[in-house]
Structures are given as C-alpha cells and as structure tokens.
C-alpha cells in the first residue's frame, strides 16, 4: 500500500463511501439523540428541544448513580474474567498444532451461529433451580449420600439437597455476560499471539529467564495491544447489556441499559433516555481518552 499522501485522489475516492455511511447512520442519528437529550415531552408523541439541562440533572438521582456503579462494577468484573480466560484460551489455540487451529477457532465462533436470545434461554434452562446443572449436582449429591450412609456417616452433607441459586444473582448475570463476551476477547489476543515472533521467547529462555518470568516480562508486554483491544471490545458492549440482567438476572440485578430501554418504551420518556445513553457514551469516551493518554506516554517513554 502506498502512502496516502502520494495519491490523495484515490484516497478520497475510497474514503467517501465509508464517510457518508458514518454520517448517515451514525453521526446523524446521534445528533438527533443529542437534540432529544436537551428536550422535553410536550405531548405523548412530540418532543421539543428546549435546551433544558433537566434530563442530565436527573441522572444524578441516587438510584440512577447506584445503577451506574453496579453496571460499572459488573462490567469490570466481566472484562477481567474474559481477559484472563480469553488469554489462556488464545494461548492454547496459538500453540496448538496447525491442523487443529481452524477447528479450535471454529469452536469459539460456533455460538455466534445461534441467536443471542436463544442462547440466553438455553442458559436459563441449564442454570435454573430445577435446571440441568442442579439436576446433575443433585445426582452427585444422592450418590455421595448413598456412599456416606453405607459407611455410617449419615447426614454429613446435609439431610436434603439444596439447589444452588444461579439466576437472579450478580453471579448469574456475570456468568451470562462472560459467556456472551468471551469470544470477543479471545480473538484479538489470539491474533496478537499469532503475530508474535516466537524467537523472542526462545531468547528469553536462553538468557536464563524461567517460564513464568518469560510469560510476564516478555510474552504479556508484547501482546499488550491485543489485550487492550480485547478489553475495550469486551468492556464497551457489556456496559449496554439489558437482556442478560432481564433474563438471567430475573430483573433483580438491573443494569443501566434496563433503565434506558424503559425510557424508550414503558416510560415513554425519550429525552431522559437520550441523556442516559449519551452519558454512557461519555463514560466510554473518557475511558478511551485515558487509554490514548497512556499510549502517548508509553511511546514517549520508549523514545527516551
């Protein structure tokens, strides 16, 4: 590829369609949402942009703030779990024999072939108190109890099997979010690992660093860009999830997107919903800005 500065006309020709696309389907709708966020409901169907700051002020009600914190907390936990698990999975795939790689990648991609709603209902079936997972645990419990009874240790593991409650808890929601987001964190880390020159690892080992030191001081820093990309594309969509809290959380562990969804439907309060959506967007921007500041510092340090 030539430098674009050398052939500006072909660059322009190629960049116009995507720019128009961005303008028509991203910036224009976003501008409408932005106008709505400074609006007021004047009737059930009409919104007037009166430049009122009310919708933004309403965000600072304690219950909304506490939902934002809960959302942030669940998202951070989900992202961390996804990165750690994703890293290990990516490592396994990257170091697998070449003939296995396509198959392993396919296994990661496979869930995408089924609709998210159907996968969530499948999880409901597995994780319920009368679900398949608890059925399995009950079977194990009964077996163990029989053995214990036979050797005269009655009641050691309780008199009755108590199913574990996964649904309607924060744990259940985190499980569901990790399940949905994991492929998104595996793929960028995998591609970073694939591009990695393995001779660096050999050099590190040859120079006397152990497995663990090589991993943390050579491997991880070298694929850091992949990890950060994975973190961002896991974190940002997780912030906006509402289906998982609704179904796996059974409405007991709402996230902020549940409130936003209600504003556009039940509550019929599009201005407030718009303000909340944009607030979420601002949080994302701030996080991305922090990242680029960090990047800039890194590269400056490297130059020195």
């Amino acid at each position: 590829m030539e430098d674009w500065r050398k052939s500006p006309s072909s660059f322009t020709a190629f960049s116009v369609p995507p720019l128009l696309w961005l303008l028509a389907f991203f910036l224009f709708p976003l501008a409408i949402v932005w106008l709505y966020s400074f609006g007021e409901n004047v009737s059930l169907v009409d919104i007037e942009t009166t430049w009122t700051p009310d919708n933004y002020i309403r965000i600072f009600q304690p219950e909304i703030i506490s939902l934002f914190w809960r959302t942030l907390w669940l998202t951070v936990i989900t992202t961390v779990i996804c990165l750690v698990t994703g890293f290990l999975v990516a490592l396994v795939i990257a170091t697998a024999k070449p003939k296995w790689k396509p198959l392993l990648l396919l296994v990661i991609m496979l869930p995408f072939w089924t609709n998210l709603l159907i996968r969530t209902y499948a999880l409901l079936n597995i994780l319920g108190t009368r679900g398949r997972l608890n059925d399995g645990l009950k079977w194990l419990w009964e077996g163990t109890n029989k053995v214990l009874n036979a050797i005269g240790l009655e009641g050691l593991i309780g008199a009755k099997f108590i199913p574990i409650q996964f649904l309607g808890t924060q744990g259940g929601v985190i499980f569901g979010l990790v399940y949905i987001m994991l492929p998104f964190s595996v793929l960028p880390i995998y591609s970073a690992l694939e591009r990695l020159d393995k001779s660096y690892l050999e050099a590190s080992m040859d120079l006397g660093a152990g497995q663990i030191r090589t991993f943390f001081y050579v491997l991880v820093p070298m694929v850091m860009t992949g990890v950060i990309t994975a973190a961002i594309i896991t974190f940002v969509p997780t912030l906006g999830q509402f289906l998982t809290p609704d179904l796996l959380g059974r409405g007991q562990v709402d996230m902020i997107a549940n409130v936003i969804e209600r504003q556009f439907k039940k509550a019929n309060d599009w201005p407030f919903g718009s303000a909340l959506s944009l607030f979420l967007l601002y949080i994302t921007f701030i996080l991305l800005a922090i990242r680029s500041i960090y990047d800039a510092r890194q590269s400056r340090r490297e130059k020195i």
Partner: peptide
C-alpha cells in the same frame, strides 16, 4: 407515568 417509572427505578436499584 414518570413518577411510576421513578418509583420502579428505586425498587430495581435496591439491594
């Protein structure tokens, strides 16, 4: 409707 929704948000954000 707005008051109802605000009450609901308080219920849902608790706990």
């Amino acid at each position: 409707v707005r008051k109802i929704d605000e009450a609901w948000t308080r219920i849902k954000s608790a706990g």
